[in-house]
């Protein structure tokens, strides 16, 4: 999967770009072809896809596994809910403030934690444990401060309204408008994240994954780059969380917890940790499948078990996940090299 690391030939779209275009066109077409539950639920899965991307750029590119992505997602979600609830009667649209606070909140929290841990050269295993603890801390916090967060019942969040000065006011209460607003957020997030990871920044991060000592010797500030990529990851998780809250109309401790955090790890492993698009699609596919199969009574108890077994199969047999498999089938496997992470 070193394909992403190689410089793009100018003027030539890569296969992944074509695939991304196809995926987003398909997503854009779905509400035209159908309506009802699919159109209602898909934006939530797209946002889970953004959450998966937030881990993929950290894990696939940076070689850093976080078991705490749910914490940043929850920070985004609760920030959105609390700002929309309490910031009323202002000239500015409170939903915009909520998104800003949620996004910046996720990013800054990750930056602070990243700086704190990486600047001391904390090793990978400790980092996993620390992020695991972060998830538990955030989950326990939102559970126990129930006067503010609603505790176990979660926090009700309004559907936002898109406003632009005085000449546009679009309620997102119906399924189709919010679908397209979410899509209009997801696409630029993907494009910017992809561009960043293909650019100088991404190459340095991949370099650190491949050989940290060499990058240090070459004069790169390794802890700073690790901190930045973790911050970026928290930022993406924060965006996803704040839009998720207004779409699902709640923020809930479940979305802060360890189990949810590890769901993200599974989506990314199955989708392909080295591919942002693969992780995005992986999250949508796995979340849809989970939702569908959990509704069938005969198999609902066995589905999580099957997921666990698929997860093992991916780690042992298909390290590139679905994206790696597709790439191999497309004949690009010869370039691929297991990254060792």
């Amino acid at each position: 999967m070193t394909a992403e690391i190689q410089p793009a030939r100018r003027g030539v779209f890569r296969r992944e770009d074509v695939a991304a275009l196809a995926v987003f066109l398909l997503l854009a077409a779905i509400p035209l072809a159908t309506s009802g539950y699919v159109v209602y639920i898909l934006p939530q899965y797209m946002l889970l896809g953004v959450l998966a991307m937030s881990l993929a750029l950290l894990w696939g590119h940076g070689g850093i596994v976080s078991f705490g992505q749910a914490a940043f997602f929850a920070i985004g979600a609760y920030a959105m809910g609390l700002v929309m609830k309490h910031l009323t009667g202002m000239a500015i649209n409170s939903a915009y403030v909520g998104i800003l606070v949620g996004t910046v909140g996720g990013g800054v929290t990750a930056l602070l934690i990243g700086y704190f841990l990486f600047s001391a050269g904390v090793r990978a295993a400790y980092f996993v444990v620390a992020t695991l603890a972060l998830s538990i801390v955030v989950e326990q916090t939102v559970k126990s401060f129930s006067d503010i967060t609603g505790g176990w019942n979660g926090l009700y969040v309004d559907r936002m309204t898109v406003t632009l000065g005085s000449w546009l006011e679009l309620s997102l209460f119906d399924d189709a408008p919010i679908y397209y607003v979410v899509l209009a957020v997801v696409v630029p997030v993907y494009v910017i994240a992809t561009a960043l990871m293909r650019g100088r920044f991404g190459k340095i991060v991949v370099g650190i994954r491949e050989n940290e000592d060499r990058m240090t010797a070459l004069g790169f500030n390794v802890p700073m780059y690790k901190t930045l990529v973790f911050g970026l990851s928290g930022l993406l998780a924060g965006v996803a969380g704040s839009f998720y809250a207004t779409h699902a109309q709640f923020a809930h401790p479940v979305n802060a917890g360890v189990l949810f955090s590890t769901q993200v790890v599974i989506w990314v492993a199955i989708g392909g940790r080295h591919s942002l698009l693969g992780s995005f699609v992986g999250a949508i596919v796995v979340a849809s499948l989970s939702n569908y199969l959990s509704s069938i009574e005969e198999i609902q108890n066995y589905w999580p078990l099957v997921m666990g077994l698929i997860f093992i199969a991916v780690i042992v047999l298909f390290r590139g996940g679905l994206a790696g498999l597709v790439e191999k089938l497309a004949g690009k496997g010869a370039h691929g090299r297991a990254a060792g992470h």
Partner: peptide
């Protein structure tokens, strides 16, 4: 035993062990 010396993979595999075992316990 196939993954000693690859801490990340053993971490993920033991996490998968947790997921599978928990589900088996529930069933």
């Amino acid at each position: 035993r196939h993954f000693y010396g690859r801490p990340f993979d053993t971490l993920l595999l033991t996490w998968a062990f947790f997921l599978v075992t928990t589900e088996v316990i529930k069933i």
